[in-house]
Design a protein around this nucleic acid. Structure first.
Lengths: 203, 203
DNA sequence: ACGTTCAATTTTGTTGACAATATACAAAAA
DNA sequence: TTTTTGTATATTGTCAACAAAATTGAACGT
């Protein structure tokens, strides 16, 4: 519901409504919310209930840094062992995105871009890394302002994808990792400024 | 309870016992367990209950890699902005550990080592990174075999600490990050073999 | 001695009820 | 008109009870 935008950040979760809506009682609802709480999607305020979490600029900036490090790790692991088939799949995504750039179609670019990065993490074989990345991606949905809709970003972004794939197929782990980290952190800097500097709320 | 060893990996959590023991009913117990489940400390098997999670070799190996990347990130962020006071604190930990090495005292070395790494993450200022690291450390408790008790490891480990601090005070982010990653991954390799290779259960 | 079957017991999953707390709203006072 | 106060309502936090599933253990047969 958070991903579909049905539940907007900051809104309260009414346990009774949700229970009625899903046809169960409040117990399972609360259990599920406790899970989401640990996953960072909701926060619990005592005697007031569960609220869809609001991701402040500071926290979003922190998540970007972490995501960059994790993607870099994925690239570092994958580079020495990437197969031609895997490389071909990644190339396919790049081609799709190139088409999206041509017609300025963000609705194609965005999910393909996600899939591209997800594939790298998946190919790394580190399953925990994979679940960590999707968890972070979920949490990112709670941050309103997105990147990539800045003019020209799509094109630059896909150039970087090409570079990433190049280093991967050349089995250069360090270069691939560095480029992946750079790739993610570029978006971060466009939004928040240099690494290690965390914006106060409102910037 | 997991950290104190009171609850051992693989054991089942009896909701009734826990409820009676903590003086509450089963509802809050189940909610707490749903939180721990998302945190990776327990797993739920349908109609059989919550079990303290067993961390297989494969998953431990994966966690080492992730932890390495996160510590490296912390070092990368901290290097450009480390203060003399922070450096002095880190040096203090290194000195303490040196004493522990001299008398072969793992009970001093281990917590100080933990504090050393925690401090670097804390000084980075990325709060989410901090909570992620303690979460991973918690989960590591579920893996039986530890490192560092291998003869000579403590001494080598503290040498690496010195190198890490050196690069930090010289504000060399790349070198500090690389050394931190190497530092964590060394332990990983001693236990599991090269990066990207994930052991089957039993190895 | 070993495995199987079946009833008794335990334990989980879910529910509805109740007390404590917070929210909303109207009336009274400044 | 604005602020405050008091009351009614709604919501959370917790509990005890019940149904469904799994576990246990004894009786039984091979």
């Amino acid at each position: 519901m958070v991903e579909t935008g049905e539940l907007t950040a900051g809104s309260r979760l009414n346990e009774n409504s949700l229970a009625a809506r899903l046809g169960v009682s409040r117990g399972p609802i609360r259990e599920a919310c406790r899970g989401l709480e640990q996953g960072g999607l909701v926060t619990l305020i005592a005697n007031r209930g569960f609220f869809i979490r609001e991701l402040e600029s500071r926290e979003a900036a922190e998540l970007y840094e972490i995501r960059g490090a994790l993607y870099a790790l994925a690239g570092r692991i994958l580079a020495p062992k990437i197969t031609v088939k895997q490389a071909a799949e990644l190339q396919g995504y790049i081609d799709t995105m190139q088409g999206a750039v041509a017609e300025n179609n963000l609705n194609v670019f965005y999910p393909t871009n996600l899939r591209f990065h997800e594939a790298i993490v998946q190919f790394s074989g580190n399953e925990r890394l994979m679940s960590e990345c999707v968890s972070i991606h979920r949490e990112m949905h709670l941050f309103r302002r997105r990147t990539l809709d800045i003019p020209g970003r799509m094109s630059i972004s896909n150039e970087e994808h090409r570079t990433i794939l190049k280093w991967l197929v050349e089995h250069d782990a360090d270069k691939a990792a560095a480029e992946l980290e750079h790739h993610v952190l570029t978006s971060r800097e466009v939004l928040f400024g240099p690494m290690g500097a965390y914006p106060k709320e409102g910037s």
